[in-house]
Amino acid sequence: MKEDMLDDLVKSTLMMEGGYKVLTQEEIKSVFKEGYSKGSINSGISFFNALK
């Protein structure tokens, strides 16, 4: 995954208010980066790519 792909992923993330905390786009990007570095996002990305 490339950095610009993360930006697109963050832009397409639905941010809902009213929960414990509303995350900023930068915080969401940080969550995705951490998940990607641990390999947990790869399976989700593979799933979505298979849908194309």
Score class of each variant (00 low, 15 high):
residue 23 L to M: 12
residue 42 N to C: 05
residue 6 L to V: 06
residue 18 G to C: 09
residue 35 G to A: 14
residue 13 T to L: 03
residue 11 K to T: 04
residue 6 L to M: 07
residue 7 D to S: 11
residue 21 K to E: 12
residue 1 M to Q: 06
residue 25 Q to P: 05
residue 19 G to W: 04
residue 41 I to D: 00
residue 32 F to C: 06
residue 6 L to I: 04
residue 35 G to C: 13
residue 41 I to L: 15
residue 32 F to V: 11
residue 30 S to G: 07
residue 26 E to V: 09
residue 8 D to M: 08
residue 15 M to C: 07
residue 9 L to G: 01
residue 9 L to H: 01
residue 44 G to R: 03
residue 52 K to S: 11
residue 51 L to F: 14
residue 13 T to V: 08
residue 42 N to G: 12
residue 11 K to A: 10
residue 46 S to M: 14
residue 16 M to N: 10
residue 16 M to F: 11
residue 40 S to L: 12
residue 15 M to R: 15
residue 42 N to M: 10
residue 17 E to K: 13
residue 11 K to V: 02
residue 23 L to D: 03
residue 17 E to C: 04
residue 2 K to V: 06
residue 23 L to W: 05
residue 34 E to A: 15
residue 26 E to I: 06
residue 29 K to W: 02
residue 11 K to R: 12
residue 6 L to F: 10
residue 30 S to Y: 02
residue 22 V to N: 06
residue 25 Q to R: 15
residue 1 M to F: 05
residue 20 Y to E: 15
residue 3 E to N: 09
residue 33 K to M: 08
residue 14 L to N: 05
residue 8 D to W: 02
residue 49 N to E: 15
residue 6 L to G: 01
residue 32 F to N: 02
residue 27 E to M: 11
residue 28 I to M: 12
residue 42 N to T: 12
residue 15 M to A: 11
residue 37 S to H: 11
residue 10 V to S: 00
residue 18 G to Y: 10
residue 31 V to M: 06
residue 12 S to H: 14
residue 7 D to H: 10
residue 2 K to S: 09
residue 17 E to Y: 06
residue 5 M to E: 13
residue 42 N to I: 07
residue 33 K to C: 01
residue 26 E to D: 14
residue 28 I to S: 04
residue 50 A to W: 04
residue 44 G to F: 06
residue 45 I to L: 15
residue 46 S to A: 15
residue 7 D to N: 14
residue 1 M to L: 07
